[in-house]
């Protein structure tokens, strides 16, 4: 079966975030963009499926400004994906418009059986696109998946929920799965992989080609603000017994949290 893996590009965690002058987004200058860490688990899983013969081919799909997003797709190709699709779109696409466009692009390919995404992207932390793709395609989904077993026309997913409880769900294929940490250990792209990736195809699709309302947003994020400055840490001095007593007193009387 053919596997699609959806990829988002996000600012590297170490990146310092500066707010744009109009307050409605972040200043993109100087940002180092990387593949969303959870998407790495999704890519790795897709490639492992191909290596084990479960998948016939792996297509990476990304959405956003095409020059930038193509870099993340190139990383997926270097890791072992066969080809890629980039949907050229602006920076400010919301979960709804993103999922709708990704679903439409995958549907247009015709023969998708299994779709992998990360469980969430670390930039907006919405955790919505995976479920929304499933809904738009009328497929079952499982998110926060840390183990997958492939059977005949079905897949069994283990998801970690609250308090260390695990849910084991069986999805009839085709299906959408959101990958969590623990699913696998993502590989690094090898040098031959990187060389090969340069020759692999990245197909370009214009957002408007998918559907006339493809870019219609439901949610915008505006009025970005930096968090208020924290007052400096209050360092508690003394020997261990004194500091422990002092801390308990402060938590009780000053912070009033105990």
């Amino acid at each position: 079966m053919k596997v699609f893996v959806c990829i988002k590009q996000v600012p590297d965690t170490e990146t310092k975030i500066k707010i744009r002058a109009d307050g409605n987004g972040i200043d993109a200058t100087g940002i180092k963009w990387v593949m969303n860490p959870y998407d790495e688990f999704a890519v790795e899983e897709a490639i492992k499926m191909k290596e084990s013969g479960t998948a016939s081919a792996v297509t990476a799909v990304g959405l956003g400004p095409k020059a930038r997003v193509s870099e993340a797709l190139r990383t997926a190709l270097a890791m072992g994906a066969d080809d890629a699709i980039v949907i050229d779109a602006t920076e400010d696409m919301d979960s709804y418009a993103t999922a709708k466009a990704l679903a439409a692009a995958i549907k247009a390919e015709g023969d998708g059986k299994f779709i992998l995404t990360g469980k969430l992207a670390i930039d907006d932390n919405q955790a919505a696109v995976s479920q929304m793709i499933a809904e738009f395609l009328g497929l079952p989904h499982a998110t926060v998946v840390s183990k997958l077993e492939y059977g005949d026309n079905q897949v069994t997913a283990e998801r970690e929920v609250e308090g260390g409880t695990r849910e084991i769900v069986q999805l009839t294929l085709p299906a959408v799965v959101g990958a969590n940490k623990g699913l696998n250990a993502p590989r690094y792209a090898s040098l031959p992989g990187i060389m090969k990736a340069k020759k692999k195809q990245i197909k370009e699709i214009a957002l408007s080609a998918l559907d006339s309302n493809a870019g219609e947003l439901r949610v915008k994020f505006q009025d970005y603000q930096l968090p208020p400055e924290k007052p400096p840490v209050k360092v508690i001095q003394g020997d261990a017994a004194q500091t422990a007593a002092q801390l308990v007193k402060l938590l009780r009387e000053e912070a009033k949290v105990i």
């Binding site: 932390n125 947003l217 439901r218």
Partner: peptide, 18 residues
């Protein structure tokens, strides 16, 4: 409002066509 970029900033949520 919600945190963005791992809490490095926050943003207001504006709904449209919802």
């Amino acid at each position: 409002r919600r945190p963005m970029y791992a809490g490095k900033c926050t943003a207001a949520v504006v709904f449209e066509n919802s």
